[in-house]
Simulated scan of single mutants.
Amino acid sequence: MEENQKPKAAALDALVALVDSDMQGVNRTIVERMQSPVALIPQLAGHIVAAGGKRLRPLLTLSAAKLCGYRGDRHVKLATCVEFIHTATLLHDDVVDESELRRGRQSANAVWGNQASVLVGDFLFSRAFELMVEDGNLKVLAILSRASSVIAEGEVAQLITTNDTDTDEAAYLEVIKGKTAELFAAACEVGAVVAGRPEAEERAMRDYGMALGIAFQLVDDYLDYSAKQEALGKTVGDDFREGKLTLPVILAFQRGSDEEKTFWRRCLEDLEQTPDDLPHAMALMQKHGSLTETLERARFYGEQARRALDAFPDAPVKTALRDIVDFCIERAY
């Protein structure tokens, strides 16, 4: 297993190394811009920022700008903006999902309560918009402000599909495009926009981010039913306990017998669950191949992301962005 871990870590390390000085600028800007005379705000925001994470979304903004030949420094503030939007959504998500852990640490809402988490999330959204306005480019503002509203729509759509076993794959795909992939797409697109590249290249970067984001979320939904979750500081089966209809469940439900569908409805619609239900659900996913198929879909979207990069000439950052696709998918192994 350690052998397999090396190329995955190397892919992320290679991308970080290529934009290292810019990423240091992002980290400094994050610290500066989450300051407030209201002490709880930097305290709570700092808790979730310090929890780590890969900073993948701002890395994508910096890398897209580099791939497109940008030489200025606007992308640093915009990458910070992307990270603030992402962090704000995490704070809100943990409240909605009643999560107690985030990246192996107590979630902010578990420490400070729901009210503080929601309000500090609002603060970070507002800071993100200040950074957008400071950039002064209306196209950038349009991309990132639209991403913020689409993310919110995706979260509400997920709320509607939760506990609804009639949810199909098309509805699920719309949810993950909104709640996850849209920010990946916007993060990449603004990198091309600040570089003043032709619309075809802006579109290619957006397509790359969208496909990568879909693949990323498919793997996340697979991982919720994997023992590897424990190594990621999360508990196995959170989606199941909350009644979320993700692709592994949707496929298993659609392929199941009437008796199996009754089981899924009891567990996910009525939320009447016993300790034996999660292992049984995972056995049904294995039986119907829904976990394997979820990973196959992730690889399909990963290949779409790689193809989108064909619009750009070969360069170390292009290679690193291709390898990041593998990094995102191989988290499953």
Results as ranks from 00 to 15, higher is better:
K287S: 03
S148Y: 07
T80N: 09
A171W: 08
D224R: 03
I160E: 14
E242I: 00
L59T: 08
L247Y: 05
R33V: 05
A64K: 09
S126M: 06
V150N: 11
S21N: 13
A64R: 02
T180Y: 02
V194L: 09
E98D: 13
D277W: 01
L131H: 00
A231I: 02
A200R: 12
R146G: 13
K228R: 12
E259A: 14
A215P: 07
V96D: 12
K244V: 01
V190F: 13
Q115I: 13
E296P: 05
N27T: 07
S126H: 04
L212C: 07
P275V: 08
S21F: 06
S36E: 11
A211C: 00
A195V: 01
G237V: 02
R33I: 00
D13N: 15
A298V: 02
L60D: 03
G72F: 05
H86Y: 03
E189P: 07
A108I: 03
C81K: 02
A195G: 08
E182W: 07
L245K: 08
G233S: 02
I324N: 10
I151P: 09
A51W: 04
M132D: 10
D258Y: 01
P279N: 10
Y301T: 04
K177I: 14
R306I: 02
A281G: 06
R255W: 05
G52S: 09
D135M: 06
I143N: 14
Y208G: 00
I85L: 15
K228A: 15
A110W: 08
L12Y: 15
L141W: 11
R203M: 11
D224N: 11
C328T: 12
G53V: 00
G154I: 03
Y301C: 07
L268E: 14
I176G: 06
R265G: 08
L291A: 14
G302M: 00
E155G: 09
A64M: 04
W264K: 05
A171Q: 15
N109C: 13
K8E: 12
D13K: 13
D207K: 13
A79C: 04
L91F: 12
Y225P: 02
L321P: 01
D13P: 03
F240V: 01
M23Q: 06
R299K: 13
V325A: 12
R146K: 15
L138Q: 11
D276I: 01
G25R: 03
R322F: 09
